[in-house]
């Protein structure tokens, strides 16, 4: 008896959801949970995010949005970076696709500053490989806009001039000696005087990558 009831209620459920076999569509695509109200979803998400932010702000009595301390259990003070371990310094995600467009870019020598950073990673993959900054900023910008920024995969660059062939994908986060072979061809004329002024002449590697020693 009971199992009859059960199956009939199951039937009702199926009917209610319009997934009853009679109504089955040929397509495998089914809308299991009804249509999505994107606006409502977005509203709820925003409310939730606001809630989280408020909780963060209360927990630390710090306004993370405005970057200003508030009154509370934590007594905040601003400390100059040189009086605190370098580790705590803010990191700025540098969107290199925009950098070439700004005058600031010209301040440091791009050749020596850019390729030396080994912390290239996700963000670097999202941004442009260092070597492309000079040759083709335009393509890079276009590409970055159409790119799926959160795909998180290093393999999606279609910019013709960015990534040279690299042997392994696992470690392409680092700048390596061989990067400079190609670079050298491009930059040889420009850099030759610098190179000869430097050391290790027996090496085939140009030395324009010399890191500055401010940070070790």
């Amino acid at each position: 008896m009971s199992h009859v009831q059960l199956s009939s209620s199951a039937l009702e459920r199926l009917v209610a959801r319009r997934t009853f076999p009679l109504h089955r569509r040929t397509s495998v695509c089914r809308n299991l949970f009804g249509p999505v109200d994107h606006e409502e979803l977005s509203r709820e998400m925003k409310a939730k995010l606001r809630e989280i932010s408020e909780r963060d702000q209360q927990r630390w009595n710090f306004n993370f949005e405005a970057n200003t301390p508030l009154d509370g259990d934590y007594k905040w003070e601003e400390v100059p970076v040189d009086q605190t371990p370098a580790f705590y310094q803010d990191s700025v995600q540098n969107d290199r696709t925009r950098v070439p467009a700004t005058p600031v870019k010209q301040k440091p020598s791009s050749d020596s500053a850019l390729p030396e950073t080994p912390r290239l990673d996700v963000l670097e993959r999202l941004a442009v490989p260092e070597s492309s900054s000079t040759p083709c900023p335009v393509e890079v910008n276009q590409e970055n806009r159409t790119d799926k920024l959160n795909s998180g995969k290093p393999t999606h660059r279609q910019v013709p001039c960015v990534r040279r062939k690299r042997t392994s994908t696992a470690d392409n986060n680092n700048t390596h000696i061989t990067d400079f072979y190609v670079k050298r061809k491009k930059a040889a004329d420009r850099k030759s005087n610098e190179m000869s002024a430097c050391h290790l002449s027996k090496s085939p590697i140009p030395v324009e990558q010399t890191p500055r020693k401010r940070i070790r």
Binding site: N94, V99, S112, A113, R119, L120, K213, R214, I215
Partner: peptide
Amino acid sequence: IYSCHMALTPVVVT
């Protein structure tokens, strides 16, 4: 998470 340190400053990783 961090990207490279800013390319705009002469900070270069050792």
